Simulated scan of single mutants.
Amino acid sequence: MKRFFLSKSLPCAAVLLAAVTTLAAPSALAQAPAWPTKAVKLLVGSPPGGPSDITARLFAEALSKRTGQPALVENRPGAGNNLAAAAAAKAEPDGHTLVLSPDTVLTVNPLVYGNQGFDARNDLVSVSIVASFSQMLVCNPSVGVKTAAELVDKAKSTRITYASGGPGVPGHLAAEMFLQSSGARMDHVPYRGPAPATQAVLAGEVGCGFLATPTVIQHVKAGKLNALAVSAGTPSPLAPDVPTLAKALSQPNLDVSFRLVLQVAKGTPAPVLAAIERATMDILKEPDIRTRLLASDLVVQGSSSAQAHQVMQAEMARWEPLVKRLELKAN
Score class of each variant (00 low, 15 high):
V40L: 00
A19Y: 11
N115K: 10
K146G: 14
T280F: 06
A30D: 08
G209T: 04
T21S: 14
Q218R: 15
K285S: 13
R278F: 11
R159M: 13
E205R: 10
T198S: 14
T280P: 03
L245W: 04
Q31I: 11
S182K: 07
T161E: 10
D103W: 05
I217T: 09
A275R: 05
T215V: 13
L72V: 15
E277A: 00
P93M: 10
A87R: 12
N140W: 01
G95S: 06
G165C: 08
M316W: 14
L106N: 06
R259M: 05
A19L: 15
R290M: 06
A87G: 07
V264R: 04
T244V: 03
L10Y: 13
N115P: 04
V201L: 03
S46P: 00
R259S: 07
L124Y: 05
R3T: 14
A265F: 08
A195Y: 12
S128L: 06
A148S: 13
Q199Y: 10
R76F: 15
D94S: 04
K154W: 09
A18P: 09
L151M: 07
L179D: 05
H96L: 05
Q180R: 15
A227D: 11
V145F: 03
V138Q: 02
S142C: 09
I283C: 00
T107P: 11
T291N: 15
P170A: 07
L137A: 02
F118C: 03
S296R: 10
Q135C: 03
E205T: 08
A89G: 02
L298Q: 14
S250Q: 12
H172V: 08
L124D: 07
F210W: 15
G114R: 11
G68A: 04
M186H: 01
V311W: 12
V108R: 09
R3C: 10
L63S: 01
F4T: 08
D297T: 01
P196A: 10
V73H: 00
L72M: 14
S7N: 14
V272Y: 00
A19W: 15
V127A: 05
R292N: 07
V73L: 02
T158F: 15
P194F: 12
R325Q: 13
L202K: 01
S126G: 09
V105K: 01
L63E: 01
G49K: 05
R3W: 10
A71C: 06
D53W: 11
V242L: 02
F118L: 03
S126F: 08
K156T: 09
I129C: 06
A232Y: 01
N115E: 11
T234F: 12
N82V: 03
G114Y: 07
A155E: 04
A175F: 14
W35V: 04
E61H: 10
V189R: 06
S52H: 13
